[in-house]
Design a protein around this nucleic acid. Structure first.
Length: 520
RNA sequence: GGUCCCUUCGUCUAUCGGUUAGGACGAGAGAUUUUCAUUCUCUAAAGAGGAGUUCGACUCUCCUAGGGACUACCA
């Protein structure tokens, strides 16, 4: 086999938002292309005019832009193997359909969908193939004059691939090895439909991959059963020697229960299955996206790459796109389906979030803050982020229990951060933390504490430490938790000196006096 | 139903005939702590079952069971 330039493609149908499994397929294609110095092509497979959804194409492009996955050619990226939208390649396909017809490798069939359905009802496991095609209305059973007449009179028809039975077709798969399927179980697939003058997936796919000089087809496992058909098509066209190599990826499975991860699972199980939020133009339904949920693209890419592949001992699991290009190995992708582990996705986001500089958090944090009607300066925001980004939040598990975990999203931060900008208004005496830490004598102690704070001239962490630490020691008190109640109103927040320094002397004392008046 | 694919800790996986079966997420325990966390340390946790092949099988073969995909004038 001769050396060929690596050229791979990702070819979605613009029928809706991009499924996260599709994102992974695209990612693997990208990694494979980049590590071989090859090209990555973006093709739109819109041969089913009835399923076209406006906006889907732009959505897909925007998704990859966000994720940092780039294409070398294709729809909206240019290149000289175009056009890259299949609906714009009608004439090309027609010519190849004719080639097959002329060679007797395909035939014209007039059976209507209704007739076929009736046939399927009538006969169990009816299949349009060598055993049945001679009983159907097609160019094999009709004279050429009859065929011509039917076409002239406006009858719709399809072109079917004439599959020779009884042959073992071998698919040499990079991930799965040798897969053999007997051609007898294949049906005479429809390659072209006259109704919209477009080919079906199978024909368009083979013609385009050949014309675009695709060297490797990396796609989901759902295509494995039709891979032999594709091999047969390459042979029928006489392109067997440049047939791309196949790699069929295992599927992404539901995190709980059985079956593959579907578009509906996301919002049902409480996590996004789309990279970006999607607004369905027809139903108006909104599906959540990773970007809008506060995920960093690096985290999504890293997490997805590890679903079905793993660097082994070669590298730890935190990997940038560049790392992935370096270590990814298509042949070592796992053969079995991977359950979608959303908790791990959150962990990755947490890791990448902490890696960011405090400044990088500020714009998003400012947005969240604005929702609460709070404005501040970028410097103050950055300070809050610095103090709070490793703190805890409470969240609901899909099972409905309340658990705690560290901050994994910028948006997690806000509910924890109000006290930086707003004094606590009320104190809930039933709150466990307050109950435990606000005793009879506390008000008096806090009053005494205020006197001490009044003497602090340098109201910084160091300045406070210098005065307060000795007092705490000498008075033998543990004022931290009551103080926290005064300034925060709850058992959360940063180090008390840091918080006091942030609030300033006046605000700190004001809050303490207020708490004393409320809690007594 | 038919065809094909798959099967290592709860989850993602490493191992390419010889290992105390390793790592990560999650779980549990402990240490640290000025709240909640973080961090650190430790622990528990796996070769679906059965036959072979072999000096030796997680690894190769077969059977069984289970899971998955496909079976459209959709991709």
């Amino acid at each position: 086999m001769q050396e060929r330039k690596v050229r791979v493609r990702f070819a979605p149908s613009p029928t809706g938002p991009l499924h996260i499994g599709g994102v992974r397929t695209a990612l693997y294609n990208y990694l494979f292309a980049k590590q071989h110095g090859g090209d990555f092509i973006f093709r739109i497979e819109d041969t089913d005019s009835t399923r076209f959804v406006p906006g889907a194409e732009d959505y897909i492009i925007e998704s990859f832009r966000w994720l940092g996955i780039t294409f070398d050619e294709g729809v909206s990226f240019g290149g000289n193997h175009g056009p890259y939208r299949q609906s714009e390649r009608r004439d090309i396909y027609k010519q190849y359909v004719k080639q097959l017809l002329d060679a007797g490798k395909a035939y014209i069939a007039f059976d209507t969908p209704e007739e076929l359905n009736a046939k399927r009802e009538e006969i169990d496991n009816f299949q349009y193939d060598a055993t049945t095609r001679l009983q159907m209305r097609n160019s094999l059973t009709l004279s050429s004059e009859e065929v011509e007449a039917l076409i002239q009179s406006g009858h719709q028809y399809v072109v079917r691939f004439k599959i020779e039975p009884g042959r073992d077709v071998v698919v040499d798969d990079i991930i799965r090895g040798r897969v053999v399927i007997n051609s007898s179980i294949l049906d005479d697939k429809v390659l072209y439909k006259s109704a919209d003058e477009l080919p079906t997936y199978h024909l368009a796919n083979i013609v385009d991959d050949h014309l675009m000089e695709v060297s490797h087809v990396i796609r989901g496992e759902e295509w494995l059963p039709s891979a032999p058909l594709h091999v047969l098509l390459y042979e029928a066209f006489g392109w067997a020697d440049t047939m791309p190599r196949f790699a069929h990826l295992s599927l992404l499975l539901k995190p709980v229960g059985n079956g593959k991860l579907s578009k509906r699972d996301g919002d049902k199980l409480g996590f996004p299955v789309f990279p970006l939020e999607w607004h369905d133009p027809k139903s108006g339904e909104v599906s959540s996206g990773y970007r809008e949920q506060g995920y960093l693209p690096q985290a999504v890419v890293n997490f997805l790459a590890l679903l079905g592949w793993n660097p082994g001992e070669a590298h730890d699991e935190m990997m940038s796109l560049d790392d992935l290009v370096k270590y990814f190995d298509l042949s070592k992708c796992s053969k079995n389906g991977a359950k979608f582990d959303y908790v791990k996705a959150q962990w990755f986001n947490h890791q990448y979030l902490l890696q960011q500089t405090d400044e990088a958090w500020v714009p998003a944090f400012t947005d969240v803050l604005a929702q609460y009607g709070i404005a501040s300066t970028p410097e103050r925001m950055a300070e809050v982020v610095r103090m709070m980004k490793q703190k805890v939040i409470e969240y609901q598990t899909p099972q409905g229990e309340t658990k705690k975990r560290n901050v994994s999203f910028v948006s997690d931060l806000m509910p924890l951060c109000r006290f930086f900008f707003e004094a606590p208004a009320d104190f809930n005496r039933e709150d466990k933390f307050i109950k435990k830490n606000w005793k009879e004598s506390t008000a008096a102690e806090m009053a005494q504490f205020i006197d001490v704070l009044q003497t602090v001239t340098d109201f910084t962490v160091e300045g406070l430490k210098a005065v307060v630490d000795p007092w705490v020691e000498q008075a033998g008190l543990r004022p931290w938790n009551p103080w926290r109640i005064c300034l925060v109103g709850a058992g959360l927040g940063p180090d008390m000196y840091e918080l006091a320094a942030f609030l300033g002397k006046d605000e700190t004392i004001r809050r303490m006096q207020y708490a004393i008046s409320k809690l007594g």
